[in-house]
């Protein structure tokens, strides 16, 4: 067992994957000599060389398009998009191409591509270094979307994503990179995209979250236990697409109340999908409205710190939302 930060766990997984499988290479902007702007690839260029840890030219469309081509030719590319905010130039390659390749070739061509994407609001990031993009891509059949919230999961899910024969968007909460720490076993099996994690068991209310918000949710749930004696079940979804519907429904059937928390903006956010699933499949178990705590519907997080804090849900906001729904 070793304690690691989220980003250390990601770096460890990359290192292990590069060592284990000669077909794996990583590419992206500044990921070589500089070790990535967040240092996720630090030391890997020195260890594996420029062929396998390759700085790309400044083109996201190129990074993903070249990644798709390499994956079609049976390599295992792990592409980094420096910030989720800059994934948009690659939208066509991801959505139009990677996600549709398998279906359009009737299973003839697979795209075993992993796209690592630091996402989410961080103080000082402003509109273009804070975006959450999960809902944009969760809408697209043919893509898997993974969002780890613990170091252990980050490591084993990244291995699982590399093994998966499908394109996987691997979203990393960059605000959590160094804030989130946890135990990581010496030996751990890869975890394929799919199952949710019951981060905290409880019978009073189900809280659904992922990424940074799952981390905050546990803090808020702990406080609700201490201050209000509430027993909140925290479900860390870990994979948004395909969604572990059984875990979501199972938790709701147990508690009767559902709160979804995401840092993405509200309208058409992934919380709406959870709410629809619960209403469709577990209507008779609901003891109250399905509540969503989200960022407000504005284009992106503002730079000013006061406005930023207003934008991003924090543990206090989650605690207040728990309290309100519990009292319903």
């Amino acid at each position: 067992m070793a304690e690691m930060t989220l980003i250390e766990a990601i770096r460890t997984a990359l290192d292990e994957a590069l060592a284990q499988d000669e077909r794996v290479f990583v590419t992206g902007e500044d990921i070589g000599r500089r070790g990535g702007v967040f240092r996720a690839t630090q030391g890997l260029y020195e260890k594996y060389g420029a062929r396998r840890v390759m700085d790309s030219p400044l083109t996201e469309m190129g990074i993903i398009g070249v990644g798709i081509g390499a994956a079609l030719a049976d390599l295992r590319p792990v592409c980094e998009i420096q910030f989720a905010d800059f994934i948009h130039p690659a939208f066509n390659q991801i959505v139009g191409e990677a996600a549709r390749m398998y279906y359009r070739s009737a299973g003839g061509w697979q795209v075993p591509l992993v796209i690592r994407v630091p996402y989410g609001a961080v103080p000082g990031g402003g509109l273009y270094h804070c975006q959450s993009v999960e809902a944009l891509f969760a809408h697209i059949p043919g893509l898997k979307i993974v969002v780890p919230s613990t170091p252990r999961d980050a490591r084993r899910l990244l291995h699982g994503a590399i093994l998966d024969p499908n394109p996987v968007l691997f979203l990393e909460t960059k605000y959590g990179y160094r804030q989130i720490r946890g135990e990581v076993p010496e030996q751990d099996a890869p975890l394929l995209p799919g199952p949710a994690r019951i981060a905290r068991e409880g019978g009073d209310l189900s809280l659904f979250a992922w990424g940074l918000m799952a981390f905050y949710a546990e803090i808020a749930a702990e406080r609700a236990a201490q201050e209000d004696g509430l027993d909140v079940e925290v479900v860390d979804l870990r994979t948004l697409h395909p969604l572990d519907q059984e875990s979501v429904l199972g938790s709701l059937r147990k508690t009767g109340k559902a709160l979804v928390v995401h840092e993405d903006t509200r309208t058409m956010g992934f919380g709406a999908e959870i709410a629809a699933l619960l209403v469709d499949e577990a209507f008779e178990y609901l003891d109250g409205p399905v509540k969503r705590l989200t960022a407000p519907d504005v284009p992106a997080a503002p730079f000013n710190r006061g406005m930023f804090d207003y934008f991003l849900p924090g543990p206090d906001d989650i605690f207040a939302a728990i309290r309100e729904l519990a009292a319903y």
């Binding site: 905010d85 800059f86 402003g126 509109l127 273009y128 000013n304």
Partner: peptide, 25 residues
């Protein structure tokens, strides 16, 4: 330029015909 919304040096000035820019290159 942005009333505190954007990072510093994200210029925008309608009167001077300077168009607001994103960080996206």
């Amino acid at each position: 330029w942005s009333a505190g919304r954007q990072m510093p040096c994200h210029f925008s000035d309608r009167g001077r015909h300077i168009i607001s820019g994103s960080s996206t290159v």
